[in-house]
Amino acid sequence: MTKAIDSNITDSEWEVMRVVWAQNKTTSKDIRDIIENKKNWKPATTKTLIGRLVDKGVLNTEKDGNKYIYSTNLKESDFLKSTLEQTFDNICNKDIGKIIADLISKSTLSYIDIEELEKVLEMKKEDAVDVVPCNCVPGQCNC
């Protein structure tokens, strides 16, 4: 039976996942060594976070002698998209455009990124509406 995946991960768990995604397969020592420059974690902290990610079904483990190798079947881009979709599901439809614009204005983008965004926005014009309808139940927003 396949274990269900809990995609709600903490900021610290994200730090671990970013290492696993970058390394493909790694040990807790490797994770600790990589994050060491950014976080002042004790070895037990790293092991606790890894254990939580294993329990959530996000990390896989395989034993190699006296150590464990950690990996994931989840693509970073798919996981990020899923997380963002979950976040956007909790926002009033009328606010999504403003939030995306705010995210873009605060982001460092390359010329290629901007060209891609312009293409997407140009295609979105074909389906654009005059007013985005609110998707909240009464009392959930200020529409």
Results as ranks from 00 to 15, higher is better:
N37K: 14
G139W: 01
A4M: 13
T48S: 14
K63Y: 06
I99D: 06
I100V: 13
L80W: 09
K42H: 14
I99E: 06
T10Y: 08
K106R: 14
K47H: 06
D30C: 03
T87Y: 09
G51E: 04
E15I: 06
I91D: 04
N37D: 12
T72N: 04
T61W: 04
L117W: 07
C136Y: 01
V132M: 11
L80R: 10
E85W: 08
K67H: 10
N37S: 14
T46Q: 01
V137H: 10
G65Y: 05
N93T: 04
I69D: 03
G65L: 08
D95Q: 14
E85Y: 12
I114D: 02
V19A: 02
E116G: 12
N90E: 10
V54K: 02
I112C: 04
I5S: 08
T61M: 15
E118W: 09
E115F: 07
G139Y: 02
N73L: 11
S71R: 02
D55A: 13
K3L: 07
C136H: 02
E126Q: 13
K56L: 11
M1Q: 14
D127R: 04
L117G: 07
Q86V: 07
P43N: 10
N90L: 08
G65I: 10
S77P: 02
K75N: 11
D89V: 07
T2Y: 04
D127W: 08
K75D: 10
I31L: 08
E62G: 06
G97S: 13
T83F: 07
T61S: 15
V19I: 09
I112T: 14
K94H: 07
Y68M: 04
N142C: 09
D64Q: 12
S28V: 00
I114P: 00
I5D: 04
L53G: 00
I9L: 08
I91N: 03
M123D: 14
S28K: 00
R52L: 14
N37V: 14
E116Y: 11
S110T: 15
N24S: 15
L74A: 03
W41N: 00
K38M: 05
N66T: 05
I9E: 00
D130T: 11
I96D: 03
E116P: 02
S110N: 12
V19Q: 08
I31W: 04
W14T: 01
D89C: 10
C143W: 12
N142H: 13
L59F: 02
D78Y: 11
P138D: 13
V58P: 00
F79M: 13
V132A: 04
I112D: 14
I91P: 02
D89M: 12
K38C: 05
E116R: 15
V19C: 05
I96P: 06
K81A: 06
L53H: 01
A128W: 08
Y68L: 09
R18G: 05
S28E: 07
P43G: 09
K42I: 06
Q140G: 09
R32W: 03
K106P: 01
D30F: 01
L74W: 05
L84P: 00
I96Y: 03
D127H: 13
S7Y: 15
P43V: 09
D130N: 15
S7V: 11
Q86G: 09
E122P: 01
K38R: 14
I112G: 11
K38E: 12
V54L: 00
G139Q: 08
T46P: 02
I100M: 09
V58E: 02
E76D: 06
E116M: 12
G65S: 10
V132Y: 00
G57F: 04
R32H: 15
K67T: 09
A22M: 10
A44N: 04
